[in-house]
């Protein structure tokens, strides 16, 4: 466990808290992509199948991971549930039009082609890695369609992007300090994912420096 990993995880948790807070205080989910949130729920459910056969008491790290996994699964399901019920009338359904099968299909094919072991759990795990890399796309698509980005939605995506960037630094750290630590599959997907935020980051930072509202061209 290094500083980048912890900071990355905290940034991830912060992004979820920001999103929940935005919905609760403004009583709406305008600008939030339900499709992206459902993809994240699917990502966590397929990533953390190992919860079923891992003893959380094995080590402090296992305990930490178990708590975080349960937190990610439960909050993502909770967000989807809230968007589909309480905040349904504020959801930009027509604008949230990214076609999700175009993400799930290729992620499934990639997982069948590239996985670490020939077991169902490993293929499903690889699927979750590939799907996470692209799950933000409906959200970015929705913002681009809406044009102006609400402050808090901007913070949410920024925190989520920061999580990916910090994880990449964590990999660099580990590759340097832990002999034999190599994770090509995770690294490739993670770098693709971080890259998807590059354009958003550029506009986010520029809007902050100019003190203007964030607009995506």
């Amino acid at each position: 466990m290094n500083i980048f990993r912890i900071a990355g995880d905290m940034s991830h948790v912060a992004s979820i808290a920001i999103l929940l807070l935005k919905m609760k205080t403004s009583r709406n989910c305008a600008g939030v992509s339900l499709k992206t949130q459902e993809l994240y729920a699917l990502v966590f459910l397929t990533r953390y199948v190992d919860l079923l056969f891992t003893n959380p008491l094995r080590s402090p790290l296992t305990m930490y991971n178990t708590i975080m996994k349960i937190l990610f699964i439960s909050t993502s399901l909770y967000i989807v549930y809230q968007m589909r019920t309480r905040y349904k009338h504020t959801y930009n359904e027509a604008a949230d039009a990214f076609r999700v099968p175009f993400l799930i299909g290729p992620a499934a094919v990639a997982a069948l082609l590239f996985h670490l072991k020939n077991t169902v759990v490993e293929v499903v795990w690889a699927f979750s890695i590939f799907l996470e890399a692209v799950a933000i796309m409906p959200q970015l698509f929705l913002l681009q369609k809406t044009g102006e980005v609400e402050n808090i939605t901007g913070h949410y995506i920024f925190a989520l992007g920061a999580y990916r960037g910090l994880y990449a630094l964590n990999w660099v750290w580990r590759a340097f300090w832990e002999p034999g630590y190599r994770q090509w599959l995770t690294w490739t997907a993670g770098i693709v994912q971080t890259g998807l935020y590059a354009d958003f980051f550029y506009h986010y930072i520029r809007s902050k420096r100019q003190g203007k509202k964030l607009k995506l061209p």
């Binding site: 990993r5 995880d9 190992d50 991971n65 670490l116 490993e122 190599r182 994770q183 995770t186």
Partner: peptide, 10 residues
């Protein structure tokens, strides 16, 4: 083939 890395990240 490649071995599955221990899943110690989230």
């Amino acid at each position: 083939g490649p071995t599955a890395a221990p899943k110690d990240e989230l």
